[in-house]
Design a protein around this nucleic acid. Structure first.
Lengths: 357, 357
DNA sequence: GCTCTATGCGCAACCGATTGCCCAATATCA
DNA sequence: TGATATTGGGCAATCGGTTGCGCATAGAGC
């Protein structure tokens, strides 16, 4: 073992990164001393420590994460799996996760499933190979039916926006039911009685919850649930297209207001209204969900339910940190918030119009 | 060395992942045989091979990337550094990179600088510690002045959308000058003579190129360059806000059309127009740059210059693969494409209106 | 002057893979 | 039948770090 790493003496210096062995050789100390000196270990003399640290800097030493995590069995990286990275919803959540992670010394390995179950499984396997310390999941497609793949996870798991993803699973989510009730009750309070619901196909569980919120709100107001007011696309398409496609059937069934599963769908609906000469909100009130960045810039500006996206990410990562500390954090359900902008307005029926005129 | 890993016999099976040593012990072979069997090495007998592979599967073996890359000096990961992940421009580019990367067996480690120079430097250091095989940079803030940090990169480097980032640096970029000329010439061909330019503060180099394209188009049409038509925000704000803020000064200087640095700024401008009763495109033509997903859904739909974002990512990764093969790929400059939608229309001045009436 | 305890550092095993080389057993060939 | 390939695997070094323990040297206590 004396010869260990000794071949390095004759190696191509440019081709290989500096290791602690290189530093040790030049400093005339042992590799373990270098390691400890760089870690600021108390057992190393102040003078030696400084000498080595300076030398390391001069030599441009960059420690190898692979070697370190092999020895310590900790990678200081959190895997994050999400459905799509171009979804305008994701960005802020990721930023929230990253911010907390960085502060705690972790890095986040983001990987996308492109809304494909197999890809999601591959992604998880990749993260396991990399021995990430924890996994944060957002918009998974594996909870829809069986979540067996996550159940067996050896590492801490935090799920975002998936209420009760499974027993013993930790999550932080915005309350879909409550948020949707907020939205629909807002419309009802404006006098709307025929309220459409636009669902999207590829987030079934979340869609179910929002639909439940929709039902609850109607029931609470003693309004009937009219199936013709529910728009469910048969083919999986772009969310904006779903929204656009919903206009005609919804109008046909006499909707005066519509709740869209998310802002993207609402934007699609807005566009369709514009093209068809339906003015929003005069002829139709529209409300979305999420409050993505663009929501404030639609014409008219979109009324929606805000999800605290950044906070969602922060909390998820904090929960992860707690889990890594061996604690048993409480699951968190956050409330969405109604953001009233320009796409909703009171409904005036004929009688009202006449008496007003 | 005989005792190597032997403590594993008494270890807590649940707490530690399975290693090839565990498999070797149970299969009654040496670790090297396990390694070779799993790699489908020809020197291992077909029978032994199958036995080991099955056993590995049963035991739930998941190879450690860290150990593997320590030994092979290859991590099969490409680092990607970008300014912000919530920028609507980024998503598709990342998807392009990832698609090609996955096919080639690589994973992409995405990390953001949040538009902060120091953070970008930290990110690069992190990637170097992780010994990524290559780095792809998008929207860097380090090329603005000195790119020394990237110059010294030991690993292949590909820069996206940064024309001539530095000597010996490889890049794939959409031609800013050409793209902007396309846009401005479109406006000129519609009869516009007073064309505004909205610049944004935090992409100085790219903004310079686009401005140059703007100038060239004007010069080619023998139009004067009026400084009052150039809007440059003093404080760094949200791009949409920049667009919104540009309306008043631009209108004051008699602009009948305006080119915005990007779609986000254009959307901000559209919103400001709406609020101020300026109808687009009748009173003001607006053109953006990028063709982000939302561009097709603004009201009216935004005319813009499309950047082939997905392709940009694909090409960058292909270039990276070539670099990793030791090849010397050519830099690539892609052309943007004019996408005419609803925010631009011919300019009719007083005389024309009269003769038309 | 002689133990006793810090102080400072080295030894070597270990993390979990890969791989050049050696060697035994069997197959092939003359 | 003896020599030579061929086949199938094992040994042990190696990647680049971390860490328990041992061992000098030196100052402290009496």
């Amino acid at each position: 073992l004396v010869q260990r790493n000794s071949f390095r003496l004759g190696r191509n210096v440019d081709a290989m990164p500096i290791s602690i062995y290189d530093i040790a050789k030049i400093a005339g100390v042992s590799p373990s001393t270098v390691s400890r000196a760089l870690e600021d270990h108390p057992r190393i003399g102040a003078e030696t420590k400084k000498r080595i640290q300076d030398l390391a800097r001069e030599m441009g030493y960059i420690p190898s994460t692979a070697a370190r995590s092999l020895a310590t069995r900790k990678t200081w990286t959190i895997g994050m799996v999400l459905a799509s990275i171009s979804d305008p919803f994701m960005g802020r959540v990721i930023e929230g996760v990253e911010q907390v992670a960085i502060e705690a010394g972790f890095n986040v390995f983001i990987s996308t499933s492109q809304n494909d179950r197999q890809r999601e499984i591959d992604v998880i396997e990749m993260l396991q190979k990399r021995r990430v310390d924890g996994i944060i999941v957002l918009a998974s497609h594996l909870f829809d039916r069986s979540s067996w793949f996550y159940d067996r996870s050896k590492v801490p798991l935090v799920v975002i926006n998936e209420q009760h993803p499974g027993k013993n699973m930790h999550f932080v989510a915005v309350d879909d039911i409550h948020g949707t009730r907020l939205a629909v009750e807002h419309l009802i309070s404006l006098g709307h009685r025929r309220i459409g619901y636009v669902s999207i196909p590829n987030r079934p569980k979340s869609n179910q919850f929002r639909f439940k919120g929709y039902q609850e709100a109607l029931t609470a107001a003693a309004l009937p649930l009219d199936p013709t007011l529910i728009f469910t696309p048969h083919t999986i398409e772009d969310h904006a297209q779903v929204g656009a496609a919903s206009l005609e059937p919804l109008l046909a069934s006499g909707a005066t207001a519509v709740f869209c599963y998310n802002d993207t769908a609402a934007i699609g609906l807005l566009t369709a209204c514009y093209k068809n000469g339906i003015s929003v909100p005069e002829n139709l009130s529209v409300i979305g969900f999420d409050d993505i960045d663009m929501a404030a810039y639609t014409l008219p500006a979109l009324t929606t339910i805000r999800q605290p996206r950044f906070e969602l990410g922060q909390r998820a990562m904090h929960m992860m940190l707690a889990l890594l500390e061996g604690e048993e954090p409480e699951n968190q359900t956050l409330a969405g918030q109604l953001v009233v902008r320009q796409t909703t307005t009171p409904f005036l029926d004929q009688k009202q119009l006449e008496s007003a005129g």
